[in-house]
C-alpha cells in the first residue's frame, strides 16, 4: 500500500455541470482508483460521474511565479464586462 500512487478525484454533481476537484485517493491502478473515488467521494449522492487522474500527471503553476502570473490581472478591471447597462427585459444575467 505504501507504493500506491496518488490520484486526484473530480466529481460531476449533476448532468450539465462540470467536474470539480473533490480530493484525492491512493490506488494501485486506474480501476482501483475509480472504486476508491466512488467509495470515498460519492457515497452520499454527491455525483453522477467521476474522473480520476494520476496526481503526477498534473502540471501545476509554481507558487513563486504567482506575482508575474496573477498580479497583472488585478488592475485590469476593464476585462470585466461591468461597464454595460443591461436592459430591464434581459433576465438571467
Amino acid at each position: 500500500m505504501k507504493d500506491w500512487a496518488l490520484w486526484e478525484v473530480f466529481v460531476r454533481a449533476k448532468g450539465g455541470l462540470s467536474h470539480r476537484h473533490a480530493g484525492s485517493v491512493h490506488a494501485a491502478d486506474a480501476k482501483m482508483a475509480l472504486e476508491h473515488a466512488r467509495d470515498a467521494y460519492t457515497r452520499r449522492m454527491e455525483g453522477v460521474s467521476l474522473w480520476v487522474v494520476p496526481s503526477a500527471q498534473i502540471v501545476a503553476s509554481d507558487p513563486a511565479d504567482s506575482g508575474p502570473l496573477f498580479e497583472p490581472a488585478e488592475d485590469k478591471i476593464y476585462r470585466h464586462p461591468t461597464f454595460y447597462s443591461i436592459p430591464d427585459h434581459i433576465k438571467h444575467i
Partner: peptide, 12 residues
C-alpha cells in the same frame, strides 16, 4: 483495513 480507502470500501 490495509489502507484508508480499502477501509471505506469494505465499510460501504
Amino acid at each position: 483495513a490495509p489502507a484508508l480507502e480499502v477501509d471505506l470500501s469494505l465499510a460501504n
